[in-house]
Structure formats: structure tokens, C-alpha cells
């Protein structure tokens, strides 16, 4: 009733909106916290601008339709898709396009059931949980199994499509996965392609960016690299890239975790006096050089190590 009587404002201060809604803060944070990913940041900036203008248009009474916000994130493992999705949820919340702004991250297992009649309730359960926020479907192409026409994934896809269309005000769906397999997935499910407005491609990190990521991770946990260790890390990244199951930043995180393990062992075995904070936080060259990557890589690894590409 009030909306009819109160005249819409005559002007809108975009710059002011940009700062007061907290979008600027979030984009700055994205710039600061995420290393590299220039095209991704560019796309997010553009999306934010579009949504901001859309919101301004709405406040002037120029548009009423909710824009389609479903997205697809394509890129190799460990390129920051989940992290960016989290930021995206925050962005949409600040712009008022989702009510709660939480992220529900699922894979095929969470959506598709084991037997007839199991899938629909399972998918609905997840959708209910994601209402008011962002539903992040990792490795979405597994939903569709072309080789098995009785696969229950199709049922989940149908429910998803229906909700993506009818509940556009209530939730935003982000599909993520490898670029080539996502392309094939969209090719065989045209319904998805037409309902997704924003395709964002995540490039691989360069060696130099990975090195910066490693330093950033270590600084965050109060670790430090000695100069020789820094050089060893550069060698490590260069070698690791050529080996199988390379997962960008995730490989680096795992390498860091193993370096910490070796450092702890070294300190434990070698220590016979009190240790100071300096020693406890210093990672030496030997902690990194001991990696299997320098000795021919994961081919000689036990089978259990192969799962590095999986999400934690």
C-alpha cells in the first residue's frame, strides 16, 4: 500500500550506495585476500556493478524482475572456486539479492539418492537448507550420467531446474567444475545453460602466484621460510606442476602441511635445548627438499596419496 502512495526517489547516488552497502569493502577484501585470478575479479566487479545498477533502477521503479543470478564457475581444482563462491554469497547478501547469504556446498552424493523415490526428498532437503542463500554444486557434471539412462541424477536435475526457475528470489545456484566437462554437461542439458547468466572461468595460477599464495598461507599461520627454503619452494612448484594430480593452491597447501610435519619431526629429533619462537616458526630448505616431488614425484607414491584433487 505504502509503495503506491510514496513517490519513488528522483535520483540515486551510485557511489554512495557502493560504499554504504559494504560492496566496496567486500571487493577490496577480495582483491587483498585472493592472489592472481585477475579475470575472475574483473567479472565479479562487473557483476557487482550490474547488480548495483539493477538495484538502483528498482528503487526508481524502472524494473521489477529479479535478474537471473545463477552462475557457473569453471576451472581446474584448487583455483579458488569455493572461496570465491563464499565471497559471492556475501556480495549478494549485501546487495539484497539473497536474504541470508549463507553458502551450502554440495556434490552429487548430497542430491542424488540410492534407490527409486530417494532422490526427490534428498534434493528438496538440500534446497530447503539453501533457501535464502547460495547453493554451490561442486563437480556438477556428475549429476548427469549419459551412459546410464536410468540414473537418478536426471531427477535431481529436473527438480533443480524447476527451483532455479520458480524460486529465483529465494536462492542462487552456482555450478562448479572442470571447464571441458562442464561444457559437455551444459551441451547435454540445455535447460541449465539458458538459466545461467554468468559464466566465470578460473585460470590456473602462475608459478609466481603460487609462490605468493604459499607465503601468504605461511604468514597466516606464523611460519616463515628461510631464503634457501624459498628457492626450494620455487623449484617445488615448477616440478609439481608437471606431475599428475596437480591441484593449484590446494597442492601448495598440502605441501605446506607436509613441510610442517617434517619441520616438527626435525625439531623433535634434533632438539636438546629450549627452542625459541624463531626456530619454531622457521621452515628450512631440508623440510621442502625432502618431498617426493624432487624424487620423481607421485608416480612412486602409495595409492592413498592420489586423492589430492578431492575437496577437503
Amino acid at each position: 500500500m505504502d509503495a503506491d502512495t510514496a513517490p519513488p526517489p528522483a535520483t540515486v547516488d551510485l557511489r554512495g550506495e557502493f560504499e554504504s552497502s559494504g560492496v566496496k569493502e567486500l571487493l577490496d577484501e577480495l582483491d587483498r585476500d585472493m592472489i592472481g585470478l585477475r579475470p575472475v575479479k574483473q567479472r565479479i566487479r562487473e557483476t557487482a556493478a550490474l547488480l548495483l545498477v539493477e538495484r538502483a533502477r528498482r528503487s526508481l521503479g524502472l524494473s521489477h524482475e529479479t535478474p537471473t543470478l545463477h552462475m557457473s564457475f569453471t576451472g581446474n581444482p584448487g583455483t579458488g572456486k569455493t572461496t570465491v563462491a563464499l565471497k559471492m554469497a556475501g556480495l549478494l547478501k549485501r546487495l539484497g539479492y539473497v536474504r541470508k547469504g549463507h553458502l551450502v556446498s554440495v556434490t552429487r552424493d548430497d542430491l542424488v539418492g540410492q534407490y527409486i523415490g530417494h532422490t526427490a526428498p534428498k534434493t528438496r532437503e538440500v534446497l530447503k537448507r539453501a533457501m535464502g542463500g547460495v547453493l554451490f554444486i561442486d563437480e556438477a557434471y556428475y549429476l548427469y550420467r549419459p551412459d546410464n539412462e536410468r540414473d537418478y541424477g536426471q531427477e535431481a536435475i529436473e527438480i533443480l531446474l524447476q527451483v532455479m526457475e520458480n524460486n529465483r528470489d529465494d536462492l542462487v545456484v552456482i555450478l562448479a567444475g572442470y571447464a571441458d566437462r562442464m561444457d559437455r554437461f551444459f551441451g547435454s542439458n540445455p535447460g541449465f545453460r539458458s538459466r545461467i547468466a554468468h559464466h566465470i572461468d578460473f585460470p590456473d595460477y602462475t608459478d609466481e602466484e603460487l609462490q605468493r599464495i604459499a607465503r601468504h598461507m605461511m604468514a597466516e599461520q606464523n611460519y616463515r621460510l628461510s631464503e634457501a627454503a624459498d628457492a626450494a619452494l620455487a623449484d617445488y612448484i615448477r616440478l609439481r606442476r608437471t606431475q599428475p594430480h596437480f591441484a593449484n593452491a590446494r597442492s601448495i597447501r598440502n605441501a605446506f602441511d607436509r613441510a610442517r610435519l617434517r619441520q616438527a619431526n626435525r625439531l623433535f629429533d634434533g632438539a636438546d635445548g629450549p627452542l625459541d619462537a624463531q626456530t619454531l616458526s622457521l621452515i628450512e630448505e631440508s623440510d621442502i627438499r625432502a618431498s617426493r616431488v624432487f624424487r620423481g614425484g607421485l608416480d612412486i607414491a602409495p595409492a592413498g596419496q592420489a586423492g589430492e584433487g578431492a575437496q577437503p
Partner: peptide, 14 residues
């Protein structure tokens, strides 16, 4: 009963 909802929409759907 729904234990892990964040938004009323889930309940309204049910």
C-alpha cells in the same frame, strides 16, 4: 522436523 534451515522459505515450501 527441520533442523538446519536458515530461511523461512524452506518451511513455507513444506
Amino acid at each position: 522436523p527441520m533442523f538446519d534451515l536458515r530461511d523461512a522459505k524452506g518451511v513455507m515450501m513444506e
